[in-house]
Amino acid sequence: MSTVMYWDGGGWAWMAFIPLVWIALLGFIVWAVVRLTQHPTGRADAQGPGQPPRETPEEILDRRFASGEIDADTYTEAREHLAAHKPRSR
């Protein structure tokens, strides 16, 4: 008498489950490749790890005035120019 060494229960469930595992695995691989190849400066608001936050034009102007790079007249004129050309918020 021969003994069958198989487990004969639920074979159809495993056959339905395995394609889902492959789809999830392939999805993870695609996500990982996109994530690893994405350049951190691809968007205007993106900041790379370890980089200081971007300064606004007003902050740059304030810093330059505080360090003595520009005089008071230039500072005032640049501030007025920035205020006149500030983008509108939606």
Rank of each mutant, 00 (worst) to 15 (best):
V30S: 02
E69F: 05
V34N: 10
G42K: 08
L25W: 06
T74C: 04
F65R: 00
L20M: 08
T3P: 01
T74W: 00
M15R: 11
L82Q: 01
D62H: 03
L25A: 11
D8Q: 12
E55N: 08
E69I: 02
D45H: 12
G42H: 02
T56A: 04
A78W: 00
G9E: 08
P52W: 00
S2G: 15
A32K: 03
P19K: 06
A24Y: 02
R79M: 02
F17M: 12
M5L: 12
V33F: 04
A84K: 05
Y75H: 09
R88F: 06
T3Q: 12
L82P: 00
T3Y: 05
E55I: 02
I60H: 03
V30M: 02
I29C: 11
P49I: 03
D73F: 07
S89A: 07
D71L: 13
P19L: 13
A46N: 13
T41L: 13
E58M: 06
E59Y: 14
P40G: 09
H81K: 09
A24N: 07
G68N: 10
S2K: 14
A24C: 06
L82I: 04
V34G: 06
T37F: 02
G50R: 03
I60R: 06
A78V: 10
Y6V: 13
A66F: 02
R43W: 15
E69H: 04
T74V: 11
W14R: 14
Y6K: 12
